[in-house]
Design a protein around this nucleic acid. Structure first.
Lengths: 112, 112
DNA sequence: TTCTCATATCACTAAATATTAATATGACAC
DNA sequence: GTGTCATATTAATATTTAGTGATATGAGAA
């Protein structure tokens, strides 16, 4: 380190504000989990599913299901409708585009 | 719990194989980080950037930059070209579609 | 070779996340 | 009221991930 900077600067790239990407990163982080994508696949197929239906489909205990659903609900990916003691989850229309891209089409181009 | 099952089954949803979503989930997980998306934004803008250029742009120490770049390189999002002591990273064409969707357009529909 | 510097790897700490048993809430049936 | 069942929450542990100083590698210059 010669005199102060501590790194090369082939080009001077302006300092970038990472906070700008906070929302999108939290959304992608909420989707980027094998079990949660599987849940999205089921919800996308059936349009609306009861949490109790996901339990046998995913083969995991109820609190695990709830936790994952809430993670996606919290960032707005899922909508929730409560009917009696049941909770029905569906994909927020705002996110249908990206969710479908992830579940279909776009996914294939990434493989191999 | 009456006699064995332990959960309701409003509809019988077939058991889903979560492993099918392993690749896509690892990709999204690698993108779903505020700092890494910021890096993708810079790389996308300049087409190809040297790791040393990202240091001042992101304002973080060199090992942190390398770690993040490697995480994305490992899942195939980034390509690397080594020239002398420099390493240039670019977005793997296979992932340009989804990366652009994330950085532009699609992102906006998610806000608010 | 020796020095410099960009990069990669290592080692360690801190923070976040996943998982799940146990418990609480709350709706409905009786 | 009591009992049942779906869901939510709590609590605790296990695992993963982020971040970074220190060190190693390796290319190019002198």
């Amino acid at each position: 380190m010669s005199d102060g900077i501590g790194y090369c600067e082939i080009r001077k790239i302006e300092k970038i504000d990472t906070e700008e990407y906070d929302t999108i990163s939290r959304v992608l982080n909420a989707i980027g989990n094998r079990n949660r994508i599987a849940m999205l696949a089921v919800i996308s197929k059936y349009m609306e599913v009861c949490a109790c239906e996901l339990q046998p489909a995913l083969g995991m205990p109820q609190p695990t299901i709830t936790t994952h659903l809430h993670k996606m609900y919290d960032v707005g990916i899922l909508k929730r409708k409560e009917v009696g003691k049941f909770s029905y989850y569906s994909i927020n229309p705002k996110f249908e585009g990206i969710v479908n891209d992830i579940l279909r089409g776009r996914t294939e181009t990434m493989e191999a």
